[in-house]
Amino acid sequence: MSSIKPITVYGHLGATPNPPKVLILLKLLGLPYTHIEKALTDDPTVEDGIKHTNFTAINPNGRIPAITDPNQNDINVWESAAILQYLAEVYDKDYKFSGKDLEERTLINEWIAFQISGQAPMSGQFLWFSVDRLHKAKYGEQAPEHVIIRFKNEVRRIYGVLNAHLEKQKAKGSDWIVADRLTIADVAWIPWARIIPAFDPTLLEELPAFKAWLERMDALPAVKETYAELNPPPMA
């Protein structure tokens, strides 16, 4: 793989859950990459900000992560789930971390789609309303309890679904979300899963299959390396 030119990753080495997915997969695949730190600001005049036209030309949504791949005509790919699929399709030729056939690819897509439409946005809303330095700092008062509970319950429901699924996988002899090996479906679920226990301290004890899965993920060298390179999360 020495002829592969480094892939440009636009990310942020802080407590933002989507860029680590891409870094973990790049490390798993042993791909070279150059990390470009973006400033998380809505101000479009900030040169290295995510809303500056130099970045919205790459990702019109003005969010990280995004990648540019010099090995494929400088294609820009954004949305973390699309990036995982793209890297798997182009560089994981022996299907170590991706689906080897349509059935496996579809199962992986299900769990990735559930991650991006469920785990991520609902966890994000739960944190927004429950963490003082977010909602309360902006409005000077706590959100009503029932709003916090709405999102907390939804996050708990989602991890309950994952936990039950992992128990089924366990019964089939698998430690992973899809098939019999680590795939990009697991990679997608890692970052939020690592954050959420700090905000719902009893969750892991209530969901043992999820807890065991998270411990396995944390022990992966690619995950350890990725998080060692990030700045300590200020929210923890």
């Binding site: 949504n61 294609i75 790919v77 949305e79 699309a82 991006i116 439409s117 946005p121 609902m122």
Partner: peptide, 17 residues
């Protein structure tokens, strides 16, 4: 890949919000 990005943009962004 553009199609995949916009499908996921809807799944992750427009739908939940």
């Amino acid at each position: 890949w553009e199609m995949v990005q916009w499908v996921f943009w809807q799944n992750a962004g427009l739908g939940p919000m």
